[in-house]
């Protein structure tokens, strides 16, 4: 097997907030064209790590390269080739979705047709709606649309599916897979293990600012099983989520 090409490389990243060590010297690579997941409990340091790579926060020390560009010297060049969905972000008030996309196109210096972008995330019916008037899932989809405007090499999604219903989550998985299939590397965080298992090629488990495991979901599961782990209860052939999906259908929900 070829040595995969690392599009992001993080070495000995440390981040201290005053005297609190949020990230304690982590190192990892993200390979080209993969979906990479950062998993871990609240406060583990996932958002901090992402935002340092996105050049939005200063690191305390360490080395980070994004597509060969250093976060210290080439922050602006990095911003041009990445798309960013923040865990918490707002959009310019009083503007509808088309106008917001026009604004971001200007900020990225690209020409795009806003309607085509909205079609990608299935929001064409909401073209004239204000961001505030969207449902949680629609907001997430819109945020993803703004990350795609500059045809980025890498997109960062910080908890893109938090708060979504099961269909919306699955539909977002499809969208994220499509984006990856078109050649974009995806880095995401999530608290849903089923999501990470289905979606991610590799995942890193972060706890208290340290990476405690990094591999493909399959390998991690196999390792656990080979160590003699067994689930306590025999799993039924379906779970409650399957019931939910089965009862409510699989289409995009506009509600």
């Amino acid at each position: 097997m070829d040595q995969p090409h690392a599009i992001i490389s993080v070495r000995n990243l440390i981040k201290n907030y005053a005297d609190f060590n949020a990230v304690k010297g982590i190192s990892f690579d993200v390979y080209n064209h993969e979906i990479f997941g950062l998993l871990g409990p609240n406060g583990a340091g996932k958002t901090t790590t992402l935002e340092i790579i996105e050049t939005l926060r200063e690191k305390t020390s360490g080395e980070i390269y994004v597509d060969g560009l250093s976060v210290d010297k080439d922050a602006n060049a990095i911003k041009r080739i990445i798309g960013v969905q923040l865990q918490a972000a707002g959009y310019y008030p009083n503007l509808n979705l088309v106008e917001l996309l026009e604004l971001f196109a200007g900020l990225y210096g690209v020409k795009v047709k806003p309607m085509e972008m909205l079609e990608k995330v299935n929001l064409q019916d909401k073209a004239k709606a204000k961001y505030k008037a969207l449902s949680g899932g629609q907001k997430q989809r819109f945020s993803i649309a703004t990350t795609l405007l500059n045809s980025p090499k890498i997109i960062f999604l910080d908890e893109p599916t938090t708060g979504l219903d099961p269909q919306a989550r699955r539909n977002l998985w499809d969208l994220i897979s499509e984006i990856r299939d078109q050649g974009t590397t995806v880095v995401l965080t999530t608290h849903y293990m089923d999501e990470a298992e289905q979606l991610c090629d590799r995942v890193a488990f972060v706890e208290s600012g340290e990476i405690i495991a990094l591999d493909s979901p399959d390998n991690l599961i196999d390792q656990l099983i080979s160590s003699g782990f067994e689930r306590k209860k025999e799993v039924k052939k379906a779970n409650l989520e399957d019931v939910f999906i089965n009862l409510t259908g699989q289409q995009w929900r506009e509600g």
């Binding site: 939005l56 602006n76 911003k79 960013v84 923040l86 707002g90 310019y92 900020l107 500059n150």
Partner: peptide, 17 residues
């Protein structure tokens, strides 16, 4: 004040502006 509080500016900073 509002652009700062509602993190609109933060999102802007993720672009090359």
């Amino acid at each position: 004040f509002n652009l700062r509080q509602t993190l609109v500016i933060k999102r802007f900073f993720a672009t090359p502006v």
